[in-house]
Each structure stands twice: as structure tokens, then as C-alpha cells.
Design a protein around this nucleic acid. Structure first.
Lengths: 166, 166
DNA sequence: GTTAGTGCAAACCTTTTGCAGCTCT
DNA sequence: AGAGCTGCAAAAGGTTTGCACTAAC
């Protein structure tokens, strides 16, 4: 679903393409990352300092209802905010490292197979599908192994509950 | 992971099994449904009228960190609260009807295959995985078809934006 | 000109935090 | 006794709503 298509389908539904919406659509489409409402708001302000946070939320809600963007949680790595991405790409899973926060995208046959099986098994009409995986990326696995070893050497007795953090 | 195991592993970590926690563990384990914090709080109050909502949140956070329960969003069908279920069962996907809210669970080979592929592909160590699917169940597909037909007959011109609800 | 959309302020809902007192072990 | 846990009040974080004004078509 390219930018032109989105704008076209909005017009047909009597939905106006305002300056604010153009800015937000561009930001979501261009950014390779997954941005949350606050990040979109901050970036939109650079182009239109008068834009309001509420407009960002309303636009996101509209795009979501119109199935033009997908809403993600990314395993709540940073908190309970939602992240957005366009539906242009193929279906994919989000793989989130719970230590460094890096997000990788996984494309592959099992996702389609899963989708088809669910449709057939329940006679279900799928509109949105979301797979999120949390764990440790290969880099952080190595770092954790070292941390654990260091911690064990430094503090043989377990840390009392009151002193634990996070 | 059965109730006994959970209680045992808690004790070993110096985590106390208080009356309040017992109540909440039982509620999560027994209920076949997916309950959110508020629902758990309401049900816990029936057994201990003095229990506090904060205790529910703290217990859920602890169980989640200890990997004893999984946190779900169920496609935010009702709002942004989270739902909880024990990790006793096999991995499964949650299939949520966006019209009636019914939640079905899908077990099957594609889920394991997906998991294995992600582990191999990225050298990723998976701790939690979550697949949520939203759409219309077979029952609601039929109802929607009728609704659409009725609506088309009753109101040929499209409903102006200002009169639309939800 | 009409209706949709915006900005502002305030409300809302879910979840977290600080702290004094209580309770398991 | 002592650390862990609870309840209470208050705050925080993310998102929505009501309303008068503005702007797209």
C-alpha cells in the first residue's frame, strides 16, 4: 500500500487529507523504525510546530481503523505505548531483544502457513495478525553469560529482595 | 507448570507465598478465561475483601518476571489493559473476533516451526512468544453480511463523517 | 458554505511509586 | 528480629473527549 494509494482511498471515503495528516503519513512511511505516538509527535513538530499531540492520536486511530497501519506492542519492552508501521510490507514477526531493545523482523513460510491454518481451522476471516517474540539476541546472550559469571564471582550469596532492582 | 511447582519455585527464591498471592494464583490457574488486572481484583475481593488493587498489580508483575504467567493484549479488543494466563499449556495463538470478542486458541505445528526458524535464523534465545490474530469468527461473518445488506438497503448514500460512531 | 478536522484543556483509565505498618519465617 | 509484603494515597504514563474555532473540499 503506497502513499498514493492511501491518499486516494482516504479521499474516496470523504476523509480529508490535511497538512497534519500528510506530515504524519510521510513520517510513518519514511521511517524504517517503529515509532510510537510521542516520537511521531516530536518529529511532526519539527515540520509544523503548532501540531497537537491529540491530532497525532486521532490520525493514528483513523489509519488503524482504515487498516492502513498496524499497531504493535513490541513486547512492552519500553513501556505500554504502541508502535506503528505501514501495511506495505509482507507479513512479518517482530523479534525483540529484552536486553538491548533491538527489533528484528522475520519473514518466512511458517507465518503464511499459520495464517492459512487458522483461517481453515476456524473458518475465521483474518484482518490483522501479529507475532511478537521476546528473548535475547545473539550479542546479548554472550554479554549476559559474562555478566552472570562476574556476578556469581562477586556476590556468591543471592541478593536480598529489597536490594534487587528492575 | 502446575500450582505446586509455582509455589515451590517461589519459596526457593525467598519469595513468600502470602494469602493474597495464593488467592491470585488460584484465580489465574482455575479460570479458563483470560482475565485482566481489574477482573482479578474483583474476584479476589470476594475471597478477601481487604485486598488492594496494587497488590494485584505487584503480584502479576512478579509472576510475569518469574515467567510463571504470560501477558496478553488480545488485539486490544476492549481497551489497553493486559490479560494473563498461566504458562502451563502448550504454546498457542490467540484468535480474537473483533465483533463479538470471542477468543479461540490455536495449537499447531506452524507455531513450533516458526519458533525454531527464528531461533536458528537469528541465533535468538526465545523467552516469550506471542501470536495474536484479529478478524471475524465464522458466526460474525454471517451476521456482518446481513448487517451490510440491511444498511445498504436502508441508507444508500454513505453516512457523513460527523454521524459515524466508533 | 458546509462538514470535517484541529487545538486546547481537562478527563480518563491503567499501572506504578513512596512510605508506614504488618506478617511471614 | 528482620526482611519481605501489604494497604493507602498520590502520581505517572498513555490515550480519549468536549467544545469552539479553523480549514479542506
Amino acid at each position: 500500500m503506497a502513499g498514493q494509494d492511501i491518499q486516494g482511498s482516504l479521499k474516496k471515503q470523504g476523509i480529508r487529507l490535511t497538512r497534519q495528516r500528510q506530515i504524519l503519513l510521510e513520517l510513518i512511511e519514511q521511517s524504517g523504525q517503529h515509532l510510537d505516538a510521542e516520537q511521531l509527535y516530536e518529529r511532526a513538530k519539527l515540520r509544523d510546530p503548532k501540531i497537537n499531540r491529540v491530532t497525532v492520536y486521532r490520525t493514528l486511530k483513523m489509519l488503524k481503523q482504515g487498516q492502513m497501519v498496524d499497531e504493535l506492542d513490541l513486547m512492552h519492552y519500553e513501556g505500554d505505548q504502541h508502535y506503528y508501521e505501514t501495511r506495505m510490507k509482507q507479513e512479518h514477526a517482530h523479534v525483540v531483544c529484552l536486553r538491548c531493545g533491538k527489533v528484528e523482523e522475520f519473514y518466512g513460510e511458517p507465518l503464511h502457513r499459520l495464517r492459512r491454518q487458522i483461517e481453515v481451522h476456524f473458518g475465521f476471516q483474518i484482518l490483522v495478525a501479529r507475532t511478537e517474540v521476546g528473548g535475547y539476541c545473539s550479542h546479548c546472550q554472550a554479554l549476559r553469560a559474562r555478566e552472570m559469571a562476574d556476578a556469581a564471582a562477586a556476590a556468591p550469596p543471592p541478593i536480598p529482595m529489597k536490594d534487587r532492582r528492575q
